Amino acid sequence: MNLFQLGQQYQELADRTDLDPTLLADTLDSIDDTWTEKVNNIAKWIESLDADVDFLTKKKRSISDELTYRKNLRANLMTYLTSAIDDRELKEVHTDDYILKPRNYKQRTVIDDEDKIPTEYRNYEKYQGMFDVDKSAVYKALKDGENVPGAHLKPNRKVTIR
């Protein structure tokens, strides 16, 4: 007998997906087993669920790590491709399958040091007493040529792939 092998009635109950706490308790109460058999099967079921939770937690972490890896790899490839096309000073590249065009997107606001950001670019109400840098106000000021200590604009150039 498997460590997590449940009795037939308990297995049928474990396979259901419509169990709310009241229905679960009523159904468990209606199973005609000795008290020790019932407790033993419920303990097996709990251990089986613990194993499922551990497996799913590891799988979720693995999927999250893979997603992060692929996003970073995509960003690195896009940077490389944009740089390669820009280095050759090309406006458009035609391949057998794609048309690649580098273009400028809205510049990114980079906050180098939050402590140096002047108070007029902070939003104190957002976090009830804690400050939050208003990046859109910083962007507008930098775009208008003003100097904002602790921040700068970073070019955002990418390739469109068609």
Rank of each mutant, 00 (worst) to 15 (best):
M1K: 09
F4L: 11
Q5Y: 08
Q5T: 12
G7F: 12
Q11V: 00
E12R: 13
A14Y: 14
D15W: 06
R16H: 01
D18N: 12
L19H: 11
D20C: 01
P21D: 03
L23K: 09
L23M: 10
L24Y: 10
D26Q: 09
D26M: 01
T27N: 02
D33N: 05
E37I: 06
E37Q: 08
N40A: 14
N41Y: 07
A43K: 10
K44R: 14
K44W: 09
E47M: 06
A51E: 15
D52V: 01
F55R: 13
T57G: 03
K58A: 10
K59I: 05
K60F: 07
R61G: 04
D65M: 09
E66G: 00
T68E: 15
R70S: 04
K71S: 04
K71L: 13
N72T: 13
L73G: 03
L73F: 12
R74W: 13
N76S: 14
L77K: 08
M78A: 15
T79R: 07
T79K: 09
Y80E: 09
Y80G: 01
L81N: 01
T82N: 03
T82M: 01
A84R: 04
D86P: 02
D86I: 02
R88K: 07
L90E: 15
E92W: 03
V93H: 08
H94K: 15
D97A: 08
Y98G: 00
K101Q: 11
P102F: 07
R103N: 13
Y105C: 13
I111M: 03
D115P: 02
K116W: 04
T119S: 14
R122S: 01
R122N: 00
Y124G: 00
K126L: 07
K126E: 02
F131Q: 00
D132E: 13
D134M: 07
K135D: 04
K135H: 03
S136W: 06
V138K: 01
K143H: 10
E146V: 04
E146H: 10
N147I: 11
N147A: 03
P149Q: 10
G150N: 06
A151I: 05
H152M: 08
P155Y: 08
N156L: 07
I161V: 15
